[in-house]
Amino acid sequence: MRGPVFAVSAISLGRARGPGRRFPDIVPVLRRRTVITAPSPAPPTPSARRRRVARLASAVLDQRSRDRGRVAAQRGVRAGVAVFVALNMTLLLNTLYLQHTRQWTPLAAGLATLPLAAGATVFAPWSGRLVARTGPRLPLLLAGGLVTAGGLCMAGLTSHTSVFLLLTAYALIGAGFGFANAPITNTAVNGLPPARAGVAGAITSTARQLGAAVGIALAGGLVSGIDAAGLAHASRPGWLTVAGCGAALFVIARLSHPKPVAAAAPSPVGGA
């Protein structure tokens, strides 16, 4: 700033002293000395432009992949809560109904629920293969449909409901549970970066425990203080809740991606 200030001051002084007493040679000299020529920037080379475009594209893709993965992980957590709410409500309501309303022994009640365990055991490996082949959407759709159908089978429960309908409902709910586990874990873990896969697994386990606690609390609240004769009727809202959890799974499956969410690979930024 010293050169321009000095030049302005000298010009003002020369004009103030009048035309006869001006310093005629100082203005051109100062003009020559105060002209600053900045070098013009060189145009970017084609390789530099390519590197810049590649960096910008990689940043945009990484951000989109992170956002998509975060949403997918949240859906996986919600699906885990819904599945375990349905499962634990089924276990508690079924146990109370068979042993108190129908006066079955604990052994008979346990044997009656074998279709539930068999469905979960048989269809869980199929679910894993479907996730690897088509992504989490199809197994979640199947899980939602099966759990919804099983809950609706029990929505009109009475003290004389046929054993065949009970076993069918247990098998449907068990098959839905078997189809649900693999896509829930896959969605939650693949939705986060590999470095946070352990965190995703822990969050999924916490969601399952939360669903179990909520399911038991809801079922217990529905039948608390109800005698054996009215227990079947009092449990109907619980079975509708099981069907609602299946419908929630169906909606989550419709919103999920048909293919597993994969992390975006870094774009090459090299170039000559």
Rank of each mutant, 00 (worst) to 15 (best):
R2Q: 12
P4E: 07
F6M: 06
F6I: 11
V8D: 14
S9I: 01
I11A: 12
I11K: 09
S12H: 08
G14Q: 15
A16Y: 05
A16E: 09
P19F: 04
D25W: 11
I26M: 12
P28A: 01
R32Q: 09
R32K: 02
R33Y: 04
T34A: 04
T37Y: 02
A38C: 01
P39D: 06
P43A: 06
T45S: 14
A48N: 10
R52D: 12
V53D: 15
A54Q: 08
A54G: 03
L56W: 12
S58T: 14
A59D: 08
V60A: 08
R64C: 02
S65Y: 00
R66S: 08
D67V: 14
R70W: 05
V71I: 12
V71Q: 09
A72W: 05
Q74D: 00
V77I: 13
V77T: 07
A79P: 00
G80N: 10
V85P: 02
M89I: 08
L92G: 01
T95N: 11
Y97N: 03
R102D: 09
W104D: 04
P106I: 05
L111F: 15
A112Q: 10
A118M: 13
A118C: 09
G119R: 10
G119C: 06
A120W: 12
T121N: 01
T121C: 01
V122I: 02
R133A: 15
T134V: 09
G135Y: 02
P136I: 00
L141A: 03
G145L: 15
T148E: 04
M154I: 07
L165C: 03
L166D: 11
L167P: 10
A171Q: 11
L172I: 04
A175M: 15
I184A: 00
I184D: 04
T187E: 12
P194M: 01
A195D: 12
A195L: 10
R196E: 13
A197Y: 01
A202P: 05
A202T: 06
A202C: 07
L210W: 00
G211Q: 06
G211A: 00
A212T: 11
A217E: 05
G220I: 12
D227F: 01
G230H: 10
L231K: 00
L231M: 09
L231R: 09
A232R: 03
H233P: 00
H233G: 15
H233T: 14
A234P: 01
T241Y: 06
G244L: 14
G244V: 05
A248I: 14
K259Y: 13
V261S: 03
A263I: 11
A264T: 10
S267W: 15
S267K: 15
G270D: 15
